[in-house]
């Protein structure tokens, strides 16, 4: 998979975001923290922990998909076909890995538009 292209406005926001991240790490020097666990006194413990934990979380979850992922109509298999109406067409282009599931994608019903009136 390739890198995602980012519009310039978002890019500027990202630089601010990176800058603040750097400041937070540097604050470890400026603020004397009173630690209650030896691990906390390691430099940049919390930033490293947060980053690594989340990357591992996402990779583990993506790997988990290989085992637990099923088509969307998996539990509806036994239902008679007339229960389902045609889905409103919408873009599925973002579903990079979704090709195997496209067959089932049309089976799901869209919410009937709720018949309420405003207050």
């Amino acid at each position: 998979m390739s890198k995602v292209t980012v519009p310039p406005a978002v890019k500027r926001l990202l630089y601010v975001f990176y800058g603040l991240a750097a400041c937070l790490v540097l604050a470890d020097w400026l603020i004397h923290r009173h630690v209650s666990h030896p691990a906390e006194s390691v430099f940049a413990f919390y930033p490293l922990f947060g980053f690594v934990a989340c990357v591992l979380l996402v990779f583990a979850a993506a790997a988990m998909r290989r085992i637990v992922m099923r088509p969307p109509a998996y539990y509806e298999g036994a239902e008679p076909a007339d229960e389902k109406s045609e889905d409103v067409a919408f873009s599925e282009s973002d579903d990079v890995d979704g090709q195997i599931l496209e067959g089932e994608a049309q089976n799901r019903r869209v919410d009937p538009s709720p018949g309420e009136d405003g207050p």
Partner: peptide, 16 residues
């Protein structure tokens, strides 16, 4: 992860 394109895409599916 998002910028690298490594974030798992949202897929219509059921997870066991």
């Amino acid at each position: 992860l998002n910028l690298r394109g490594w974030y798992p895409p949202e897929i219509r599916s059921v997870n066991l």
